[in-house]
């Protein structure tokens, strides 16, 4: 599908409970790449559903998406 890059609309999403602006239809993997994440030990869900790492490159972000990025921390 042809999507002219310059005319991409900016939309609001929620990232870990905070508002953030991304290009409409931009890739989840691009968002993650800008977050300085470690190589492993994290997981991502969009709108309450897990997005496996292999699918982040094909997942497009839309207005209102709720993105959660989690990791493993100390617990009992």
């Amino acid at each position: 599908m042809f999507r002219p890059l310059m005319s991409r609309r900016v939309v609001r999403i929620m990232l870990n409970g905070r508002e953030r602006q991304v290009g409409d239809g931009s890739l989840l993997s691009d968002l993650l790449a800008g977050l300085d994440l470690p190589a492993d030990g994290y997981a991502v869900e969009v709108n309450g559903r897990l997005v496996p790492r292999s699918e982040a490159r094909s997942r497009l972000l839309r207005a209102g998406d709720q993105v959660e990025v989690v990791t493993l921390v100390g617990g009992g």
């Binding site: 990232l15 994440l37 030990g41 989690v70 990791t71 493993l72 921390v73």
Partner: peptide, 17 residues
């Protein structure tokens, strides 16, 4: 281990793993 949000505002620190 517990599963929690990554603190995106903090600089990457020492990791439990």
């Amino acid at each position: 281990v517990a599963v929690r949000r990554i603190d995106l505002s903090a600089p990457p620190g020492r990791r439990l793993l």
